[in-house]
Design a binder for these strands. Structure first.
Lengths: 104, 104
DNA sequence: CCACTACTTGGCTAAACTACCAAGTAGTAT
DNA sequence: ATACTACTTGGTAGTTTAGCCAAGTAGTGG
């Protein structure tokens, strides 16, 4: 028997993406790094809330941070996260008609 | 301004994948449809628990079902769900060294 | 009809998650 | 040192989720 896929670890990563604000932040970070204050403006939540969302994503390995003066800049750690989104689009698209990843 | 991505809908889809048992089921369903009873054996939970997991994924548009005699068979509704996993692998791999989607 | 199998749904409790405020840390500047 | 900005962390209340058992539904077959 092979080591068998570790679904617990994988689920943790996916779960870290499964929140509207976190998804919006990942989407924004695709264009380059941003500080927590910018991300707060983006999602319109309390700074502490945004900081906690980021720490969840950081623990999951989705983003990494870098201090620069007073600011903390976050960036995607793995660029493919957004290709990833294509499949999600496909699920949504499939609600109306037939289409999948390759098409989008 | 463009219609702006609906992160709530997308997050719901992703969240439906963010659970070890559900991930294991999606993984198994990649090889073809399975009845709830087989999936129960796979994840080792109560039949009612498995049924609820499946209904979450069905509502999210990840799977669809089909009755066949006494059984209810579930199958993936969007095949790309597993390509999707490649990026998750990349996040895990990045924990040790540099690698991403294209490499896996 | 009754019994049996395969599911689904309701109800419940325990655990996890989310978001806020408040307080603390760290770097900058006076 | 004091003050200010940019975060992070602790605490807490409200919401959501997960899993089990029990009860109900739906086909199958005697």
């Amino acid at each position: 028997m092979m080591p068998k896929v570790d679904f617990v670890k994988r689920a943790r990563i996916i779960k870290a993406m499964g929140h509207p604000s976190r998804l919006a932040m990942l989407h924004a970070l695709a264009d380059g790094e941003m500080c927590v204050c910018d991300l707060r403006d983006l999602v319109g939540a309390d700074l502490s809330t945004v900081s906690k969302h980021l720490s969840v994503m950081k623990r999951a390995g989705l983003v990494e941070d870098r201090k620069e003066g007073l600011r903390v800049n976050y960036r995607l750690r793995v660029p493919c996260i957004l290709d990833f989104m294509n499949c999600v689009e496909a699920v949504l698209a499939r609600g109306k008609k037939t289409a999948c990843c390759s098409t989008l």
